[in-house]
């Protein structure tokens, strides 16, 4: 399974703009897209890191608890 072209483009654009808010959002979308697959914790981690940088408590808690459940943190 691959990221959709659109989501991939959004992620790259957000990296170029150093837009942590959009990065947290798009990586979470990717994690949802890959829910249950081996890639899920990777994308959750990415979203978790950018939400930490942002101080976005809601996303931090959400991604953290999913990583915890997957025993990845």
């Amino acid at each position: 399974m691959n990221l959709t072209d659109e989501l991939n483009k959004d992620i790259i654009k957000s990296h170029i703009n150093s837009d942590s808010k959009m990065l947290a959002k798009h990586y979470l979308e990717a994690a949802n897209l890959f829910k249950g697959s081996i890639e899920e914790p990777f994308f959750l981690t990415q979203s978790y890191v950018f939400s930490l940088e942002l101080g976005d408590l809601k996303t931090i808690q959400h991604t953290f608890s999913r990583l915890k459940k997957l025993n990845r943190i």
């Binding site: 890639e39 914790p41 990777f42 959750l44 981690t45 978790y48 930490l52 990845r72 943190i73």
Partner: peptide
């Protein structure tokens, strides 16, 4: 946090 420190998605 130390992202991916134990391998991809392992923090």
């Amino acid at each position: 946090t130390t992202p991916h420190v134990g391998g991809p998605g392992k923090n």
